[in-house]
């Protein structure tokens, strides 16, 4: 359960006034008060042959080294860094992704895969945007999509695994960012677990990622899946779903969670508060608030 801030942007072309990462960090800085507990961001990278972004949460000291060792066994390492409670890795030549994910998750109770994807990378850390920046140098990133989240935990634990963005272990290259609470989480989770999905956190937002993966696997496209979610997810939410092909935004029928959008020929930016957009781009941009019960999709 999260009350929080969302802030991010999509560049539509190569006209970047400022680096994507620089803007998103500025946006998240101004959303700190909405979510002081942790900060995270999803970055979209260009497709390269056979490489896989793999991010892993852990809590206990020493388990980072175990994660890196295990990755070495399963894959060719392009790069790995251990951030004290988070392992960021880019790996190659993974023969069986499912086997690898299970192996990582089985290292210890506190270890779980945060996200994996050929193009999507999820980076998160406890505290505010400055901590995230210090760990991962987000401001160096200048790709197409960077969307972040600042979290104020309302019910579930404050740790990195419960931080957002959240993903589903049975679907790569999809991650979600959610502000609100899903009040039928327990029922949905039990239904999806019966269907064979694994949940890694006690955070209700995770069910959105699982829900979307399940719908995509059933043949719906992202827009259809998100439209269905408006009726099937209960509670309050503004959420964003990110895949290498699309970014989608959904708002529940009650209009309870804030979200504003600024769109130009060059970019789309969205944030819980327009202050974040102003701060990110360093200038006033005309923003609007999408209505409740709305799904918007941007093709990448």
């Amino acid at each position: 359960m999260n009350m929080c801030g969302i802030g991010g942007l999509i560049y539509k072309n190569s006209v970047h006034e400022k680096k994507t990462g620089e803007i998103v960090i500025k946006m998240l800085e101004s959303l700190c008060r909405r979510g002081p507990d942790s900060t995270g961001v999803a970055l979209l990278h260009p497709k390269t042959a056979d490489s896989l972004y793999m991010d892993v949460n852990y809590e206990k000291e020493g388990n980072g080294a175990k994660v890196i060792n295990l990755l070495t066994e399963f894959a060719t390492i392009v790069s790995t860094t251990d951030h004290g409670s988070y392992v960021r890795a880019l790996i190659k030549d993974v023969s069986d992704e499912e086997l690898l994910i299970n192996a990582v998750n089985n290292i210890d109770h506190d270890v779980s895969v945060s996200s994996y994807g050929e193009q999507l990378e999820v980076l998160k850390f406890l505290g505010g945007a400055e901590n995230l920046e210090r760990q991962f140098r987000i401001s160096d990133y200048d790709g197409k999509v960077a969307i972040g989240h600042t979290r104020m935990a309302t019910e579930s634990k404050v740790d990195i695994s419960h931080s957002q963005p959240l993903s589903c272990h049975q679907g790569k290259d999809l991650t979600i960012i959610h502000n609100g609470h899903i009040t039928n989480y327990i029922k949905l989770r039990s239904k999806f677990e019966k269907k064979g999905y694994h949940f890694i956190t006690g955070n209700d937002s995770e069910v959105i990622a699982v829900y979307l993966v399940d719908k995509l696997k059933s043949g719906y496209d992202l827009k259809e899946a998100m439209e269905l979610s408006l009726n099937e997810l209960d509670g309050s939410f503004s959420y964003i779903a990110i895949t290498p092909e699309n970014v989608g935004l959904a708002k529940e029928p009650f209009g309870m969670k804030p979200m504003v959008i600024a769109e130009t020929d060059d970019f789309v930016a969205f944030a819980s508060e327009s202050m974040a957009i102003t701060n990110g781009f360093g200038k006033n941009l005309s923003v609007f608030e999408p209505d409740s019960e709305e799904v918007m999709i941007w093709k990448l």
Partner: peptide
């Protein structure tokens, strides 16, 4: 205001 995030404001 709808949640603790807005409540601070």
């Amino acid at each position: 205001w709808m949640g603790p995030d807005d409540l601070g404001v």
